[in-house]
Amino acid sequence: MKHSISMTVNGKEYSGEVEPRVLLVHFIRDHLGLTGTHIGCDTTQCGACTILMDGAAIKSCTVFAVQAEGAQITTIEGMASNGELHPLQEGFHEEHGLQCGFCTPGMIMTSVELLNQNPNPTEAEIRHGLEGNYCRCTGYHNIVKAVQYAASKQA
């Protein structure tokens, strides 16, 4: 049986009809057309599907869309405003924090919460904070520098 759901995504109201078995990441990508949120492993490990749900970074492959009824969702598409990149997006650009870019949306969304909790993290705290996000290209070094860039820009 389908359920009616509505949620706020990147400041806009969305609603839809979904079966309970639809995962939030599929709702975001297939129903809303917001394909910036990626599906990597589909097993709660790689973090490519990370979004913010009511301010907390979560893996949207491990949440049913029906669970997000009434929630405030932010995806990578909601990061830039008025044509200006978010400091984290700018950091990944400036510090060459990506190669293929597949993991980048998830890295950025996890880093948003990381910097909200701890605006001035040490290198070790950044690495620990990104434990749930895999990158198979960069070796993480420039990703850490990108987060440091954003932290100093937001300071």
Partner: peptide
């Protein structure tokens, strides 16, 4: 436990 995203849920 797990990682930050897992701990949030």
């Amino acid at each position: 436990i797990g990682d930050p995203q897992v701990r949030n849920k």
